[in-house]
């Protein structure tokens, strides 16, 4: 039975692993930290899997476990970003004034996101996953109004980081 469950879990996770990788991408800034967080999320998913009854979609259920691990359960400090990175973001913004390619903008955006708080990153993640405010509020356990207010703040904060 356990073996059967394990096979099913591995197949489910293999299919949806991009969700976990994307969470890791927002919460970490190097390969080691990425792998480390991926491992902890996988362990937490596996631990919670016997309780997964299929009421929600597997992917929706994964959002919660993955975000909970990144926000609350995970305790490695490797992913902490040094303050120099922030300066390099600002520097790049100035130097890239005349070279405004989309790729460069995306890199700057990722760097800016790394300066957000854990909660703000979760909101950004759900927004990027195209979740509406009702889904965001349900996943995070806050009211819809609160989710909307916080999301607007995150957008403003990102704007400030990118256009100081």
């Amino acid at each position: 039975m356990t073996e059967e469950l394990e096979h099913k879990f591995i197949a489910d996770l293999e299919q949806h692993q991009n969700i976990v990788h994307k969470v890791c991408k927002l919460y970490t800034n190097n390969k080691d930290a990425h792998n480390d967080l991926f491992q902890e999320i996988t362990i937490q998913l596996w631990k919670a899997y016997p309780k997964f009854r299929g009421e929600a979609k597997f992917s929706t259920w994964m959002y919660r476990v993955a975000l909970n691990t990144a926000i609350t359960l995970y305790r490695k400090s490797k992913r902490t970003i040094k303050t120099q990175d922030f300066d390099s973001v600002l520097f790049k913004i100035e130097s890239s004034e005349y070279d405004d390619t989309e790729e460069q903008q995306l890199q700057l955006l990722y760097k800016a996101i790394h300066h957000l708080s854990d909660i703000e990153k979760a909101l950004v993640f759900l927004y990027l996953e195209d979740k509406n405010y009702r889904e965001i509020s349900e996943t995070m356990g806050i009211s819809e109004v609160n989710a909307r207010v916080k999301m607007n703040r995150v957008k403003n904060k990102l704007k400030k980081i990118l256009n100081p």
Binding site: E14, K25, L109
Partner: peptide, 29 residues
Amino acid sequence: DQLELLKKNWKKLDHTLPKLSREEISNLI
């Protein structure tokens, strides 16, 4: 909107992300 730009590219990311095999996932758990 800056986030809109990122959202537009978010799905394209799928091809660039690491892809773990079943065996690797099995080791992790």
